[in-house]
């Protein structure tokens, strides 16, 4: 349950599974892996931003539980995970996001 908006989060996206397992797999010590989790989120945001900058989009971590995706025209969306994020990003860019696009790849190699 997200305590900010009351939304029930029922699915763990597969990219979050590793931390989820570590946290809930065995005996839970409260907050034990929080530092890793937050560090991973921040790294993820910075990686994703290098991709999104090619399309004029930007992602921010929001309180360690959600992400905010925004474009330069002032639209923004709250997303739960990467699966959600790509979907919304496609909507904001008219389906232009393509990981096989040579233009994007050369942008990433710089």
């Amino acid at each position: 349950m997200c305590i900010l908006c009351g939304e029930l989060v029922i699915n763990v996206h597969w990219t979050d599974q590793k931390n989820h397992d570590r946290e809930y797999g065995n005996i839970v010590v409260a907050g034990e892996s929080q530092r890793d989790r937050v560090r991973d989120r921040l790294r993820r945001v910075s990686f994703v931003n290098r991709i999104l900058s090619f399309y004029g989009l930007d992602l921010r971590d929001w309180g360690g539980s959600k992400y905010i995706l925004s474009d330069k025209k002032g639209s923004s969306k709250v997303v739960n995970d990467l699966g959600d994020m790509w979907q919304e990003a496609q909507k904001l860019t008219d389906n232009r996001l393509d990981p096989l696009d040579p233009g994007l790849l050369s942008h990433l190699r710089v």
Binding site: R44, V48, I51, L82, W86, P99
Partner: peptide, 9 residues
């Protein structure tokens, strides 16, 4: 990040 983006598209 790569695989989720690839599968999305």
């Amino acid at each position: 990040i790569w695989l989720s983006m690839l599968l999305q598209k």
